[in-house]
Each structure stands twice: as C-alpha cells, then as structure tokens.
Design a protein around this nucleic acid. Sequence first.
DNA 1: TAATAATCGGAACAATGTTCCGTTTAATGT
DNA 2: ACATTAAACGGAACATTGTTCCGATTATTA
Lengths: 206, 206
Amino acid sequence: MEACFPVRREDESRTEIRPKRRMRADAVRNEDAVIEAAKAVFTSSGVDAPVREIAARAGVGVGTLYRRFPSRSDLVAAVFRHEVDACAAEGKLLAAKYPPDEALEHWLLRYTEFLTTKKGLAAALHSGDPAFDALPDYFRANFEPVLASLLEAAAMAGEVRKGIEPYDLLRAIGNLSSASGEDGPAHVKRMLSLLIDGLRYQRERD
Amino acid sequence: MEACFPVRREDESRTEIRPKRRMRADAVRNEDAVIEAAKAVFTSSGVDAPVREIAARAGVGVGTLYRRFPSRSDLVAAVFRHEVDACAAEGKLLAAKYPPDEALEHWLLRYTEFLTTKKGLAAALHSGDPAFDALPDYFRANFEPVLASLLEAAAMAGEVRKGIEPYDLLRAIGNLSSASGEDGPAHVKRMLSLLIDGLRYQRERD
DNA sequence: TAATAATCGGAACAATGTTCCGTTTAATGT
DNA sequence: ACATTAAACGGAACATTGTTCCGATTATTA
C-alpha cells in the first residue's frame, strides 16, 4: 500500500528504463490536468475537498484519477511535491536573473508564500499517513541546496554574512510564519525583512 | 449551529433555572455512559473513531447520542472538558493531601499525562471547527487558577521562587511535552524535573 | 488498418456523519 | 395505583465521500 507515484516516463533526465510502450498521450495529459485541478481545488476549498470535485474539474472520471494516485493522500503528496519543485525551480531562475542579494531576498519571500499556502498540509503531515512519510525529506532535499547556493553567492559578493546554515534558516522562517496568527502576510513580510537585515549585518566580516 | 452542550441540570451548584420537569433519570445515565464510552474509545482508537462504535459501547442508539451531542465535534469537546475538569479537580485534591512542594510536583506530572493523552486533540483544535472555539479558554480558565494556587502555596512555604506566571509555565510544559518525539514519557518526565529544579533554584530569594 | 494492451469513465460498494420518526418510558397529578 | 404526557429511545434511512471494478474506448504499433 506504499505510495507508488507514477513518475512520468519522459523526463528531461529520461533514463528510458525499457518502456515497451511509452506512456500514452492522454495519460500524460490527464495526469497534468489532475494535478493542476487538485492544486486549484486545494487552495480554494482546502485539502479536504472531495476527490470527485477534483476529478470533475480535471474533466476526468474518478477511476482515471485513482489509477494515477492510488489514494487521496497520494494525490495530496504529489501536489505538495509539485509545488516544492516549482518553488525550488524559481530559486535557480532568480539566481540567474538578479544580483546575489536580490535573488536571495526574492526567493525567501517566495518561500514564505509557499509556506502560507501549505497551512492545511502541515496538519496532514503529522497525521501518520505513510503517503506523507517521505515529504519532509523531499522538502529538505530540494530546498536546502537552492538556499545554500543563494546564500553562498550572496556571501561571496559580500552582501551577507557567512556561516549560515541553510536548513536552520529554512526552519526559522517556517516557525516565524506559522506563529503569525493575526495580520498574516504583512506580519510575515515584516519579520522576514528583519531577518534579512540580520543576515546583512556583519556582512563584511571574514 | 453553535455547540449547545446540555449541562446537567442537577449540579452541585444547582441553580435551578425553572425546569418544569427535571432531567429524566435515563437521560442522565445515558449522558454519563456516552461520555465514558467516548473517553475509552478515543484513547484506544483515537478521536476519529466512528460514532457508532461509541454509541454501541455506551449501550445506546446513535439517535440518543446525537440528541445530547448535536455533532461529533461536540462530543469530542465534551470529553475534553470532562478531562480538564478531572485534572483540575485533582489539583485541589493534591493540595489538600500533600505539602505544597510535593503537591505542585505531583500535579505537574499529572498535567503532563493529561497533555500526552490529548495528542490527537491538538490537531483537531486547530481544525477551525466552531465546536472547539471555546476550548482554549476553558483550558486556561480551569488550569491557571489551580496552578496559581499550587505555586503560591509552594512559594509561601519557601519551596519555590516567586513571580512565576502560571500560564507561562502551563505553556512551557505544553511545548516541552509536544516536542518530545522519541522516548516519550521518560523524556518528558526528565525535562519536567529539570524544570521543577529550576523553580526551586533561588527559592530563598525574596 | 487491424490488433492489442493501456486507459477511461462512472456505476457500485463501503464506511461514516447525521436526521427522522414510530415506539417506549419516566415523571407528574389525581 | 393509574392515566396522561412530554421527553427520550433506538435504529432504519439518508447524504457524503473514499475506493474498487469492469465493460467500453482509444492511442500505439506493426
């Protein structure tokens, strides 16, 4: 009953593990449609939204949905990974587009957005469902390298102090934005710039 | 749709608000039976246990259960209050039975036990269900005075430092026992005695 | 274009929260 | 004691939702 996520067989890193037939085009289309629909429904109605609603929005029967995602939790986990991927990818993109310190700042802000949309998931994560077991590792494995290289680049440029543990920073921001009950986004943003100022302080020190 | 908990009409503080007829004996019996059954089932199968199972264990039809507890959440909340009451009552009992410092120590230990059995509830509390809205206040309103008088008595006896905020201590212990993932009870107990030693330190200081 | 195996769709099943209502019964007044 | 009656009881029935099944469909391949 372990989560067997159907990893698209045509990836950029297509290892081509002897597929007698490559995945059918409609299957690919539907998998995408389901994930996109799920993302939309989850953000609008929460992670407890009925599966039927997601299937309907994707223009697909529930049978189709269940072939790809053997259980509800698998779908939730897949969407989570999808968004982790998106956020991590944006990190690389920002690094190429902006000077080191701006890239870092932009990404940290983007990361807080990621966190706030995952409020509902935080509870599910601790539900003991085995489909979620691998998510914390996935989270870390994807975010830590991105932040590490952003931090390193900024430190090289002398914009930010050295010796900051990426994972510590990820967790700190996580706690920080989960502890903001009242005014929400504005508060998080304020605390985040405080934190960034903290990173800049002592930046010239070797 | 707000939680209308049927407060037993015959209380020790029976205010007697013009009941044309007093609550039927079988109704009283059944309410007790349901709460007791729910407590048992919740601890053995978690707070997500089916309502039918609780009704069966109480020897009662689901209709009866739903008359008293209009929704599942109401029953969960009622059990929670029941246990808060029990833990708070034990505080008064310990205060009468032991010297101040021992009473304090015993009760804090009892409090950690209360906390560990409420692991499942912690998630439900943040679920947004309106039946749980009043629980945090209920929690504080019952525990804070108990701990306050235990602390005061111990401080009077010179066993514990003064100026400790009861609510801070309640929260501190709460965080402390929620953060103990591994060895569980033993770890909590160890951390708790550390904390109690901290309370004793400087106890002679005015 | 025919063969074929993967995929599709949605009816059907199972579990569970909740409501309804005919039947039973405890409380009350005589 | 007994009749009256309003309250309470029990559990069948309903609604929602996760999940499974299988005959119909269709993309792929030769």
